[in-house]
Amino acid sequence: PGLLEPTSTLVRVPKSASTLGIAIEGGANTRQPLPRIVTIQRGGSAHNCGQLKVGQVILEVNGISLRAREHQEAARLIAEAFKTKEKDYIDFLLTEFN
């Protein structure tokens, strides 16, 4: 916890459905420098988890920082975290603030 930013929250999302079910916008060199959750689809793993909220900004995925990553790369990292068989969950470090 000492390593976390004061306003950040760690959320573990179990892979409970065949999709993650979030839409993100943002990435390096855009108006939204870190990816922000813009949609949570009903029936997806993220929705089932119940702890993700629209508007939250994703700082890290499984401990990997999304800072300075362009949109496509951030999206790829999240997609790979969902796809990997190594873990049956994804850890998101989130903040409410930009």
Partner: peptide, 15 residues
């Protein structure tokens, strides 16, 4: 003249 740098909006990706 507008001096503020405006960054482009981001695309949206469904995951």
């Amino acid at each position: 003249r507008e001096k503020r740098l405006t960054l482009p909006p981001s695309e949206i990706t469904l995951l």
